[in-house]
Design a binder for these strands. Structure first.
Lengths: 168, 168
DNA sequence: ATAAACTTTCAATAATTTTTGAAAGTTAAA
DNA sequence: TTTAACTTTCAAAAATTATTGAAAGTTTAT
């Protein structure tokens, strides 16, 4: 396969994966483009490469900066802003885990904790079933939370080394 | 908090989480409703509880069966079909992991493997950057894949015991 | 066979999400 | 300053995704 075709395929696959996981397709594609680009790119170049509008490019780039996945770069003597992606895949994974934990897991844990304080009649099947499901989900969520916390602090090789060794 | 209010809150939170992770909100809500319901429910009851149409309820229930999260139940002497959810949260987690792995991770692994066969000039920065990113992502994806494989076969207590022990 | 009870389908509609692009805003050189 | 280069905003339009509901389909009892 040609490099040019491979790039397009990578951008497409990354965009599809993103959209399946609740991440805007365009955002994932811009990230993919920057990931495989050895040089920082301008808004203009990104618009051209992906055929998207200026407004879309601007918002998407802002979001990606908000996710901590890309950064602005200023080149001496130039007015234009350049954008480049952190290429360290473990950093990327941690950054995504960190943001999604903060935005989604933490709020859910909060709700689950509130819900586990509901009191009721232990003889009432409605109450018992509710309480059991909420408690079980809470336990699972706490374990996921702990594992993510570890991941956020860890070095890649240590993390996978530890996990895969046990599961050998 | 009242049980009735708590139920609504749980259904809402589960629906929101689902939509943030690329799962249809209604599907997540129907799942939540069945999770906290001690008895199997009819389509009619689900329509009423969540104020959704018959068509929507039918499709959503079919999807949930496809995900292996709920089952039909036939009651002796009744024409109606009843639906109930598997209440074992570890089974649920495994089932979701299994389906998403099949639908999303496996296709991505396939593409990454194709892309890592691209040949080119090692002196070309475009090629080098592309190859490195694809290879790094591939390695991460393979580790995630292995961990999921282990999870799919594992008992809950063993799985979390192993992971959390190492991370203590 | 017929009817009643129940389920499924799917074209039309509604809701939500994403994108556009032109205008407004900002910054830095002349 | 003024102008030109560049960035940001946001209301409107487009695209996508979800939902409705009535009609068609199916199954079981009589």
């Amino acid at each position: 396969m040609e490099l040019a075709a491979a790039k397009l395929k990578f951008i497409e696959a990354w965009g599809k994966l993103g959209s399946e996981w609740g991440i805007n397709r365009t955002m994932a594609q811009v990230h993919a483009l920057l990931l495989i680009s050895p040089e920082a790119l301008t808004t203009e170049e990104i618009m051209d490469a992906l055929s998207i509008s200026r407004g879309n490019a601007n918002m998407t780039l802002r979001d990606l900066i908000g996710w901590g996945l890309i950064e602005k770069q200023h080149k001496a003597g130039e007015r234009k802003e350049y954008f480049f992606a952190d290429k360290d895949v473990w950093n990327i994974a941690r950054q995504v885990a960190k943001e999604r934990k903060k935005r989604e897991l933490d709020p859910v844990l909060k709700v689950l904790n509130e819900l586990s304080t509901v009191v009721g009649d232990e003889k009432n099947p409605e109450y018992k079933t509710f309480k059991k499901s909420v408690n079980d989900i809470n336990k699972l969520a706490v374990n996921v939370d702990k594992t993510l916390e570890t991941m956020l602090k860890a070095e890649e090789s240590w993390f996978w080394g530890s996990i895969l060794k046990v599961f050998k």
